[in-house]
Amino acid sequence: MDSTAETSAIVPIFDGHNDTLLHLAFSKEKSDVAMFGKSDGSGHIDLPKARKGGFAGGFFAMFPPPVTEMNIDKEMQGASYDLPLPPLLPLEKAQASTIAMLSAMLRLERAFPVDLAICRSATEIRAAMATDRIAALLHIEGAEAIDADFANLDVLHAAGLRSIGLVWSRSNIFAHGVPFRFPGSPDTGPGLTDAGRALVNECNSRGIMIDLSHLNEQGFWDVAGLTTAPLVATHSNVHALCQSTRNLTDKQLDAIRESRGVVGLNFATCFLRPDGAMRADTDLDVMVRHLDYLVERLGEDGVAFGSDFDGAVIPSDIGSAAGLPRLIERMRSAGYSEPLLRKIGHENWLSLLERTQGQA
């Protein structure tokens, strides 16, 4: 496909998950926020790649990284794997890294005021997209930076936080996550703690979206029994097609549909491939099979994208945000209509945010 064909096929994409702030704040290759304005070959998202691929914005995650670096990509190979997770991250370390990523986001907005805006609502996202600015919604992946008394939650919410993933796989004071295990079930242990139940209630009262990705199955059902908002998994796939602990069972998908929630398709190849391998040579048809399954199970209003850009190995045919039109074109070839492409591309996330924030 030539570049002209790709450009003509662009659908605006509002994406459910990226780790670009982690990349900007801590990568030795790309630590200067100013580098966001030009493509230097590293990173999945920068301004030129976003413009080329129709990346209109998304949930920008603040993920407190482990103290000891993990190289999980190389370990997710072979017929099976079960990776040990790091221990609980101390509050002060999680707070420091989260503030560093929040600072990176604020500096991005200052450096590129014509090109990017931090948004706090679906209304602000629509306004940013209408003026061709990347719409950035702040998200936490792993709530280790939030204290049990929620004083930090007040501060982060005031700064623009509108979405929280209770865990990033490792356990914390709020909940238990799933290990990186293949093949495996998401039913891996206990669910929410008392503090986690209180955090769900706090999120509901503030209109903060609760992300169920990385949470184990019991935690999923605990949230489902407590929350007044739709159930959401920003970057998870279909367990029936890839038996990773990170993926969602049919029963979980049915509960998400019943709540009028949304699942964002994760581009990480280990959660797409039937063999669970983290390999870039993954055909886009594998992604379409997951999308077909999700649409069948959730309906057309329940499916979106949750790329995991800058946080995982993605199919080489996409490569970066610049390659998003290739996935859209493959979906067109598979029979996806233009209205459905727009729903999956951005409309379903915006509608979900309106329903979530309307609960507050």
Results as ranks from 00 to 15, higher is better:
Gly16Pro: 05
Thr245Pro: 07
Gly264Ala: 01
His346Tyr: 15
Arg342Ile: 07
Leu353Val: 12
Arg133Ile: 06
Phe220Gly: 07
Asn71Ala: 08
Phe36Met: 14
Leu137Phe: 03
Thr234Gly: 00
Leu340Arg: 04
Arg342Met: 11
Arg206Cys: 08
Gly189Glu: 12
Gly53Asn: 00
Leu291His: 00
Leu192Asp: 05
Ile72Pro: 00
Thr228Tyr: 00
Gln77Phe: 00
Leu341Met: 07
Gly16Ala: 03
Leu88Gln: 14
Gly225Trp: 00
Val200Arg: 01
Ile72Trp: 08
Val67Asn: 09
Ala79Arg: 09
Glu144Pro: 00
Glu300Tyr: 03
Pro183Arg: 08
Gly225Gln: 08
Pro86Trp: 11
Lys93Asp: 12
Asp275Met: 02
Trp221Asn: 04
Gly53Tyr: 03
Leu137Gln: 05
Gly53His: 01
Ile344Phe: 06
Tyr293Cys: 12
Asn152Ile: 03
Arg257Gly: 09
Ser307Pro: 04
Ala25Val: 07
Cys119Lys: 10
Arg326Gln: 12
Ser236Tyr: 05
Phe63Pro: 01
Leu272Tyr: 05
Leu212Trp: 01
Phe150Glu: 06
Ala79Glu: 15
Ala79Lys: 12
Ala321Ser: 15
Ala334Ser: 10
Leu153Glu: 07
Leu248Asn: 10
Met105Cys: 13
Leu324Cys: 13
Lys52Met: 10
Gly78Pro: 00
Ala360Cys: 04
Asp281Pro: 00
Val232Gln: 05
Ala321Pro: 02
Val114Ser: 13
Leu265Gln: 01
Ala175Gly: 15
Gly345Phe: 07
Gly306Val: 04
Ser97Gln: 14
Gly54Met: 09
Phe63Cys: 08
His235Met: 11
His157Tyr: 14
Ala255Asn: 00
Ala143His: 06
Leu353His: 08
Ala94Val: 04
Ala312Lys: 05
Arg206Ile: 04
Arg330Ser: 10
Glu6Asp: 06
Asn172Phe: 03
Lys343Glu: 10
Thr245Tyr: 06
Asp292Lys: 07
Glu202Pro: 02
Pro84Ser: 10
Pro12Ala: 07
Lys30Asn: 12
Asp211Pro: 07
Gly43Phe: 11
Ser259Val: 11
Ala175Val: 09
Ser244Ala: 13
Leu88Thr: 13
Tyr293Trp: 10
Ala360Asp: 08
Leu153Asn: 04
Ala312Gly: 03
Gly142Lys: 08
Gly54Phe: 08
Leu324Ile: 14
Pro86Phe: 11
Glu347Asp: 09
Ala322Ser: 13
Lys93Ile: 04
Val223Gln: 12
Leu294Glu: 08
Ala158Gln: 14
Ala159Gln: 12
Asn216Phe: 09
Phe112Ala: 01
Ile99Met: 12
Met287Ala: 15
Cys270Arg: 07
Asp15Trp: 08
Ala151Leu: 11
Phe112Arg: 02
Leu153Asp: 06
Ala94Asn: 04
Pro230Lys: 04
